[in-house]
Nucleic acid binder design. Sequence first.
DNA 1: GCTGAGCGG
Length: 144
Amino acid sequence: MAMAMAVAVVRALKAGRSGISRFSTFSALSPPPPAEAPPNAEPDTNLFVSGLSKRTTSEGLREAFAKFGEVISAKVVTDRVSGYSKGFGFVRYATLEDAAKGIEGMDGKFLDGWVIFAEYARSRPTTPPPPPPPPSEGPSGHQT
DNA sequence: GCTGAGCGG
């Protein structure tokens, strides 16, 4: 019973997050609203986990998601100056199927007393290396 | 110690 209620809460939260109402006013001079806004993101090994508790750490995230797949990397985003958790983190799985299982297995579930949300992150494939500067001139000691 | 939507480095 309690679990069913939790699922309803989760659905309500996720529905409200979109902020899109089906009762849109259709007018000729109004911008045509999209038929539907799929919260689905493109599959990736990077997962964006939100709704985390302030006490949840990267280790808690890894252990929580490691039950559904091989977690390559897990990190909870914390503030630079306060050092406190921002309430969300990122989990990277070994494969896309593990990532999907992680979402299906942890999205809308309870972690540390809070309902967490797991979805595909927009993040970049890996640590962004600094772009190499363009070569100014040829070999030094000789230029025309 | 903590605010509770969002996307780190």
